[in-house]
């Protein structure tokens, strides 16, 4: 198996590798020396396991995620399909207005599909979405969990709202577009989720 590093994130390295004759991506969680071993091993194993579970489940509900080929819990490695697209973070600021609007709605619809089945992504930012042709792939479920509470869904969307504010601040309508897509597909009462998000914003310091 050959390896070359594609991206070095905060908690994992993304390698391009070959696995049974195909080009794959390997996400390897790296040991963090700043935290004690007990905590580190537990975080790496539990996040790897949870991530693989959530990805498989998300896929079954029609959300595009890379196909998983192999999971190594002790090593903290998930071997998955290589999605050769572009990160939304890198292209959102430069795309044409109408395209951006449609992409944002599409993001919202996909988040609703996750939330309809109580899948909380945990780190919905534009860095964690890849556009390939007309499909938006969701990656990095490493902070995800299953949770049916309104609070969890609200916090999940709030993370994205903050990402838009910090990284795509010139396009203030992005989150509204995401939410309108979300409202289309969300099975529950989307207005309650909206109220919850407003509640979370107010709860923040100095709001």
């Amino acid at each position: 198996m050959t390896k070359n590093i594609l991206y070095r994130g905060a908690e994992a390295e993304i390698h391009l590798a070959t696995y049974m004759g195909r080009t794959v991506v390997q996400k390897q969680r790296v040991v963090k020396r700043y935290r004690i071993k007990e905590l580190d091993s537990w975080l790496i194993a539990s996040r790897t396991k949870e991530e693989a579970k959530l990805m498989t489940e998300a896929r079954s509900y029609g959300v595009s995620v890379p196909i998983i080929y192999d999971v190594d819990l002790a090593g903290g490695i998930i071997t998955m399909e290589y999605v050769a697209g572009q990160r939304i973070k890198d292209i959102l600021n430069t795309m044409e207005h109408q395209t951006r609007k449609e992409i944002c709605r599409n993001i919202g619809r996909n988040i609703a599909r996750l939330h309809n089945h109580d899948i909380i992504h945990g780190d919905i930012t534009t860095s964690n979405m890849i556009l390939l042709q007309d499909r938006i792939y969701f990656i990095d479920f490493g902070l995800g969990c299953k949770n049916s509470e309104l609070e969890a869904k609200g916090v999940d969307l709030h993370v994205l709202m903050e990402a838009f504010e910090s990284t795509h601040s010139k396009y203030s309508s992005c989150f509204q577009d995401v939410f309108s897509g979300y409202s289309e597909r969300y099975d529950g009462d989307a207005s309650l989720v909206k109220l919850k998000i407003e509640d979370i914003v107010r709860r923040g310091r100095y709001r």
């Binding site: 905590l39 537990w42 945990g122 780190d123 903050e162």
Partner: peptide, 11 residues
Amino acid sequence: YLPLPYSIKGM
């Protein structure tokens, strides 16, 4: 080390 909740949501 006694396990405690490790609560990170995004950043």
